[in-house]
Write a protein that binds this DNA or RNA. Structure first.
Lengths: 65, 65
DNA sequence: GCTTTACGGAAAGCCTGCTTGACACGAGGG
DNA sequence: CCCTCGTGTCAAGCAGGCTTTCCGTAAAGC
């Protein structure tokens, strides 16, 4: 699933680790989502969207791959 | 996680099975989401929200239980 | 009574989300 | 040179999403 996590994270000057800590997940989880290895859970997706002031639908493209 | 699936499904006069077929999942999956036994995946959550013309954030309350 | 429809839920199994811990690499700074 | 930082990825393990199959129950219609 394509997502805007990487772009938004970088635009905010955050490392994967910093974002992970802010959301209470592991760095590997953020990395896996950014590299498309797996999709976040609904709960994490909502937290990610909130963190960047976006909606879930804006942030995650459910229709890709 | 609390959700508005049951209310919206009933408001649209759909059975759990009819909704399940419309979304390509099993009836038990819809039942489990409505009864709170587990949370939907991000993909299914987006499909459910779309089906009822809502946003994910309107449809699912990530902050409960 | 019998049948159908709708719902709740259990069991087993598969795949995926997430964890910790570890290793490797490149870029940059001293 | 070395050290640190940021990233990519692997392995093992646990929890949870989803499937199929199955059983129980209650309401509604004939």
């Amino acid at each position: 699933m394509r997502s805007a996590v990487r772009e938004l994270r970088q635009a905010n000057g955050l490392s994967q680790e910093a974002l992970a800590r802010a959301l209470g997940v592991s760095r590997q989880t953020i990395n896996a989502i950014e590299t498309g290895r797996y999709d976040p859970s609904l709960r994490l997706a909502v937290h990610l969207a909130r963190h960047f002031g976006r909606t879930v639908e804006e942030m995650f493209d459910v229709d890709t791959e």
